[in-house]
């Protein structure tokens, strides 16, 4: 149905499995078996030979897409502004990183690219080269039919100068090739029970990351026209199919109301152990599909 969500899974979900107990072939199979139609990847993690995979790997990639019927959705990338100690990347260098990843994403068939820019402050304001660097590659993104999506991710809420800056950029340039990616971790409203994040205890953002940002999902309404992709971040779904951290029963109705029909791409980020994520992702797909069906059953 045209007005339904599309369901995908990010291979990032299998971070604790990938490379030690899971190959890319197995990752594809686990995703396809959920009934998902899309696969999301991290370029530097999942593409052997990144950023220039050889022909054998490319044959493998396209063979897997054919066999599973999955379509490439979003490729995650990084603009490592602090690649060197003491000297940040220039605009030229930042743009070159984007060209590198747009080119690879296009080669692999992706429609979205999420570059993560280095930041300059504790509240994660991106390095100011982001705007001129992105502006330089908008024509290329247009030619390759790729939407560049900065990620709105905890601890940055929706109503924040960083997000306003992205929206101003879209309005100023009039581009269709730059839009927002929402990570649903911003809606987390109950504390994580078992999760060791990279951020140490006592850090100012530690409480936010453990207890949740508690962004009101209604705030999606104000940015609806700018949303291109959703990473359905979650941490634990219990044996009764109850998400312990993300209030999906509040998020999904808002997404239906604003007419979102893009991807919900599962991004499991729970306990750092192998063999957990595969079933957690399956649970999330049942939960999300049930909520969507319940919304569809009620006349608007």
């Amino acid at each position: 149905m045209e007005d339904r969500f599309k369901y995908g899974v990010s291979l990032y979900s299998f971070t604790e499995d990938f490379g030690s107990v899971m190959s890319i072939e197995e990752g594809f199979d686990h995703i396809a078996d959920t009934g998902a139609t899309g696969i999301e990847i991290l370029g530097e993690t999942h593409v052997t030979g990144y950023p220039t995979p050889d022909k054998a790997w490319l044959d493998r990639w396209f063979g897997l897409l054919d066999r599973t019927g999955l379509e490439p959705t979003n490729m995650c990338s990084w603009v490592d502004t602090k690649l060197r100690l003491g000297q940040s990347l220039s605009v030229d260098e930042g743009a070159a990183e984007l060209v590198r990843d747009l080119t690879l994403a296009h080669q692999l068939g992706f429609k979205f690219l999420r570059p993560k820019f280095g930041v300059i402050s504790a509240d994660l304001v991106p390095d100011p080269i982001w705007a001129p660097a992105v502006e330089r590659v908008l024509d290329l993104a247009h030619k390759l039919d790729i939407v560049i999506c900065p990620e709105i991710h905890s601890p940055t809420p929706i109503n924040h100068p960083v997000v306003h800056g992205y929206i101003d950029f879209i309005e100023r340039t009039g581009t269709k090739n730059f839009a927002l990616l929402i990570d649903t971790g911003i809606f987390q409203d109950r504390p994580l029970k078992s999760w060791v994040h990279e951020v140490p205890e006592g850090d100012s953002d530690h409480a936010k990351l453990i207890n949740g940002m508690k962004v009101n999902p209604e705030e999606l309404v104000g940015i609806a026209p700018y949303i291109a992709f959703i990473q359905a971040k979650f941490h634990h779904i219990d044996d009764n199919l109850h998400d312990e951290n993300i209030p999906w029963e509040k998020v999904i109705p808002v997404l239906k109301r604003i007419g979102y029909t893009g991807y919900l791409s599962s991004e499991y980020e729970g306990v750092r152990e192998p063999w957990v994520a595969i079933d957690q992702v399956r649970r999330q797909h049942v939960l999300l599909r049930r909520l969507e069906a319940a919304c569809d059953a009620v006349p608007a």
Binding site: K82, L83, V119, A122, E198, D203, D205
Partner: peptide, 13 residues
């Protein structure tokens, strides 16, 4: 490990 997208005071971690 330095992750440029982490807050400056958390680099390296």
């Amino acid at each position: 490990v330095r992750s440029p997208y982490f807050p400056p005071h958390l680099q390296p971690l």
